[in-house]
Each structure stands twice: as structure tokens, then as C-alpha cells.
Design a protein around this nucleic acid. Sequence first.
DNA 1: GCCAACGTTGGC
DNA 2: GCCAACGTTGGC
Length: 139
Amino acid sequence: MNYWLFKSEASTWSWEQQVAKGDAGEEWNGVRNYQARNNMRLMQLGDLGFFYLSQKEKSVVGVVEVCALAHPDSTTDDVRWECVDIRAVGAFPRPVTLDDCKADPRLADMVLVNNTRLSVQPVTADEWRVVCSLGGYAA
DNA sequence: GCCAACGTTGGC
DNA sequence: GCCAACGTTGGC
């Protein structure tokens, strides 16, 4: 079981849209970055991830689960780009902001804090527990 | 809206 | 294979 973080802009794909897809989930398409794609190729069914909103909210707002392994991205014919499907598992009672993460010494090495531009990134088990705790989310 | 950081592209 | 130019992301 590994942990991840998926970054989205609310204006492009919001948490509400993700939740509306229900248990069937939706493919996390549109990623055009090799590092992000490679991370998705490493994902296993049942892996969990944070749903993070960039730009305005800059907060982790919920938890998602990988429900389909990496497959070709339906939004392009370019065979280089693949994506997984994810489904919403639960919302954070309290969103955890980027500032919250920066302020917590236990999250000093979190990719979110150190590589702002990577849109699909790994999260360690320790970081997972800390962020869930800050968000009042019972893992 | 600006700009820093980073990734990608393409000429050499 | 290097690197300059360019494009994009995302925090501020």
C-alpha cells in the first residue's frame, strides 16, 4: 500500500466533480509530465491519495483511492501519456492548507512543500498520518 | 498579474 | 549530448 497526492485546480476538476463520479471513479487524465506519469504507473489498486487543490484553495480537501491501473489517457492519441482512475473515499472535516504543511516540521520533506510543480507525487506513510490528523480525518 | 522554478524542445 | 529558448505551473 502506497500513498500519493493528486493536484488539481478547482476550476478544472473540483472535489465536488470527483465525488459526483461515485465509486466508479474517473480517470485522472491530462497529465503531460513524465515524473507524474511514472508515479501513476507505480500505483496499485487500493492505493490511497490526497486530493489537493492548487491556486486558490491550496489545500488537501479529501482522500481518493486508485480504482484502475495506469492505462492510455483517453484525452490524447499520444501513447506516451497514461493515467489511473481514482474515486473519492472521503472529505476532510478540515482542509489542510499548504501553509499548515509548511508550518509542521514533520512535513518538512514533503514533496508538496519542496516541489510545487509536480502534479502527481508520492507521500510517505508518516506524512499521510500527519496530514490526516491535521485534517481531522480518521484514516 | 508577476515571476521563479522547472520541464521540454530543438538547433548545433 | 549540450544548452539556449521557450512554455507551463503554481505560489505569492
